[in-house]
Design a protein around this nucleic acid. Structure first.
Lengths: 149, 149
DNA sequence: TATTGTTATACTCTATAACTATA
DNA sequence: TATAGTTATAGAGTATAACAATA
């Protein structure tokens, strides 16, 4: 069976819906840590140790801002700094076990909250969502860097 | 053709992916106004005039916090206050044309940014996304209230 | 001289507490 | 007395500017 064609208008409709999703998402989900702290921890978790400047660029904050943020994470035991063996100027940051634990707890809680909404959907809608998971995952992982400010 | 069954594990997978989407989303999208300002304007746009206390509950902030936020919006000409004819204690807030314009501009810009990522997906993925739009829209609109703090 | 990171300072946002006005 | 909203104060988070150390 041939795939349905995806037109310009369709692409716009997809983007439009996803943007509305983001507003929805923003209204759920209060977290103890700031949103930037969470995404920074997530980056460290997924991609391993990083420089301050790389983290800053990736999260769309300034370098001094990232220094402060990392200091907070270190104070709370969620991350740690260590010297970059290849560059005396640089500092590398790595997530700790406690940091991973915070990330896991938060993810578990939020997943449960979202799941409650999914249960209210029709079987057809859930099936459609299931069919789009792979696409959504690609979307999230392909280009997860923000635009610099 | 019968629908594929949606199991508990599937529901979890959907919720899991959506939560990852939210982290992705957070990394895109810097906005001039705060996230709460945007969602508040969006609520006023979608559901009409509201009381301060209702807005506060809906956005998951305190009543004094919403007073301040609304004052900012009013100062910028994006919303306006008027007396509730049915309750002398209450103030109603309504979005202005300028507010709608800000919302539209932001939506347009973000939709365009997301669309760029969609263009990098395969035709199959885009088709799957298209098939899930209705489900996603239901998800966003069914229960768009945040949990109170 | 350019780059990496930190410190100093100021501004925005939002929470808690105390207050005013109306029901 | 309870409810709607505001004002006062404090704290978190992040930006810009100035600085120190290394490449």
């Amino acid at each position: 069976m041939p795939l349905p064609p995806v037109t310009d208008a369709d692409e716009f409709a997809i983007a439009d819906t996803l943007d509305r999703m983001l507003l929805w998402a923003r209204r759920k989900a209060p977290t103890r840590l700031s949103a930037t702290s969470i995404t920074t921890l997530d980056t460290l978790h997924l991609h391993g140790p990083q420089r301050i400047s790389d983290l800053a660029a990736g999260e769309g904050v300034t370098q001094p801002g990232m220094t402060t943020l990392v200091s907070r994470l270190v104070d709370e035991g969620l991350a740690e700094r260590f010297a970059d063996p290849t560059d005396g100027r640089a500092t590398l940051v790595r997530i700790t076990d406690a940091g991973r634990s915070v990330l896991a707890d938060r993810h578990r809680a939020r997943t449960e909250a979202i799941r409650a909404d999914i249960l209210r959907l029709s079987a057809e809608h859930r099936a459609a969502l299931l069919g789009a998971l792979d696409a959504l995952n690609h979307l999230c992982t392909s280009s997860d860097r923000g635009t610099p400010r």
